[in-house]
Amino acid sequence: MSTFATLLGKELRACFCSPAAYVVMFFFWALTGGNFVWLLGQLAHGESLTLATQLLFSGPLLTFSLPVVVPLITMRLFAEERKLGTLEALLTTPVRVHELVLAKFAGAMAFYMVLWLPVFAYAFIQHRLCPPGVAGFPDLGALAGGAVGTVLVGAVYIAVGLLMSSLTSNQIVAAIGGFALLFGETLGFTILAYSATNPLMRLVGQYYSSFAHLMDFARGIIDSRIVVLYVAYAAWFLFATVKVVEGKRA
């Protein structure tokens, strides 16, 4: 446990003490701000209030930026260690590979969650702007659902990014690999879910599209099937990462 804590501490420092992290943070926070402005515009044009909380987490601007943002967070995790040769230094200490992988995953998750913090500030602003008499605004259930969904989707994306990073010593390759996989997945299944003519394909899309899932979560619907699917996804990619790091040494 103490080894894990040491590794996690190092990951957190590396995450929050690097200029690249702040660039990512700046752009993502600009996007959440943009999303909020767009949302206010929608509401000003008479869009239903029920959308207001939902779109805080699942605005398309945010959903479709995640496949870009997450690989930017995860690209350095293993690729940099390989490039510097520090992976060899790490794995010749009494560290277990799964501890290392989990520490990197947890560090990236922490950073990812910090990225989403402004959304709660926007929810608070909504709450303050809300005219008296409109009950249940913002919708706390939807807010919680959105947070859970965001964390689950993030866990899967980060696990995918981690696997990509473990496969190469080139951060750019890791980022582009993660981006291609995640964007392909999100866009592909979302297109299937919303515009496939074949009903079966449409169903497949609905089962797998993380955009559709996020919309549901942000409405406050926590579907246990989807939760299991995402946890299993993340676990599988982490397991694959452990195997890659164990196997790919030279």
């Binding site: 510097l84 040769g85 520090t86 060899e88 200490t93």
Partner: peptide, 17 residues
Amino acid sequence: VRRRIGYLPENCPLYPE
């Protein structure tokens, strides 16, 4: 074994930051 070995890998990898 690792507890008993002090290993300096080739090119001395360190975290520059």
